Simulated scan of single mutants.
Amino acid sequence: MLSNIFSIVRWAIVIILWPFVLLSNSHAGIGACDDLNAITETPQVNFELEIQPILTTHCVGCHSGPNPAAFLDLSVGYTDLVDVDSFEVSGFKRVEPGSISRSYLFIKINCSNQIFGNRMPLNGNPLNLIEQALIRDWIRQLLIFRNGFDD
């Protein structure tokens, strides 16, 4: 009986920690992710004015229309992004409010070594550091607005 309990607990720990193992492996290697630490936070990032234009410029060529890549339509605002499970990697949200390390979208645009697939945009240059930092700041600030402070 006791060994069954330990077995269940062990598997629960593995299931809970597995996404973190994947994430740490995706960042393996020197220079795998762009360093944004020198870029100060932009306060009150506005999705429609600051984030959607980045997505429109770099992403909607593949992520829009009736059959968007990864079932992710980035032409319709953030309804397909925020608090939506990742299609490619279980245990991650496309965008996890407040957490860039748990937001698959941010990993896809910020890191060369990926959990799954390739860095985005697929057939273009990586987003510049300012664009990446704006997306970082928007994701971090989502937690504040999600908790009822959106005025």
Results as ranks from 00 to 15, higher is better:
Leu2Trp: 13
Leu2Ser: 05
Ser3Met: 08
Ser3Cys: 11
Ile5Ala: 11
Ile5Gln: 07
Phe6Lys: 05
Phe6Gly: 09
Ile8His: 00
Arg10Gly: 12
Ala12Gly: 13
Ile13Cys: 06
Val14Phe: 14
Val14Thr: 07
Ile15Ala: 14
Ile15Leu: 15
Trp18Thr: 08
Phe20Pro: 02
Ser24Tyr: 03
Ser24Gln: 10
Ala32His: 01
Cys33Gln: 11
Asp34Phe: 12
Asp34Cys: 04
Asp35Thr: 11
Asn37Thr: 12
Ala38Arg: 13
Ala38Tyr: 15
Thr40Asp: 15
Thr40Ala: 14
Gln44Leu: 14
Asn46Tyr: 08
Phe47Asp: 03
Phe47Lys: 00
Phe47Glu: 01
Glu48Ala: 13
Leu49Glu: 09
Glu50Leu: 04
Glu50Tyr: 09
Gln52Trp: 07
Leu55Cys: 04
Thr57Ala: 13
Thr57Met: 08
His58Arg: 11
Gly61Leu: 05
Gly61His: 06
His63Pro: 00
Ser64Met: 00
Gly65Cys: 06
Gly65Gln: 06
Pro66Asp: 03
Pro68Ile: 07
Pro68Trp: 10
Pro68Lys: 00
Ala69Trp: 06
Phe71Tyr: 11
Asp73Ile: 10
Leu74Cys: 04
Val76Asn: 08
Gly77Leu: 11
Leu81Arg: 01
Val82Phe: 05
Asp83Leu: 14
Asp85Tyr: 03
Asp85Gly: 14
Val89Tyr: 15
Ser90Ala: 10
Ser90Gly: 09
Ser90Val: 02
Gly91Glu: 09
Lys93Gln: 15
Val95His: 04
Glu96Leu: 11
Pro97His: 14
Gly98Ser: 05
Ser99Gln: 10
Ile100Arg: 04
Ser101Thr: 14
Phe106Thr: 03
Asn110Cys: 00
Cys111Tyr: 01
Ser112Cys: 01
Gln114Ile: 03
Ile115Gln: 04
Ile115Gly: 12
Ile115Thr: 09
Gly117Gln: 09
Asn118Asp: 12
Arg119Cys: 05
Arg119Phe: 11
Leu122Val: 02
Gly124Met: 04
Asn125Tyr: 03
Asn125Gly: 10
Pro126Leu: 01
Leu127Thr: 14
Asn128Gln: 00
Asn128Phe: 08
Leu129Met: 05
Ile130Val: 12
Ala133Val: 03
Ala133His: 10
Leu134Tyr: 02
Ile135Asp: 05
Ile135Gln: 05
Arg136Cys: 11
Trp138Phe: 02
Trp138Tyr: 06
Leu142Cys: 12
Leu142Tyr: 04
Ile144Tyr: 15
Phe145Trp: 14
Asn147Gly: 09
Asn147Trp: 05
Asn147Ala: 14
Gly148Gln: 10
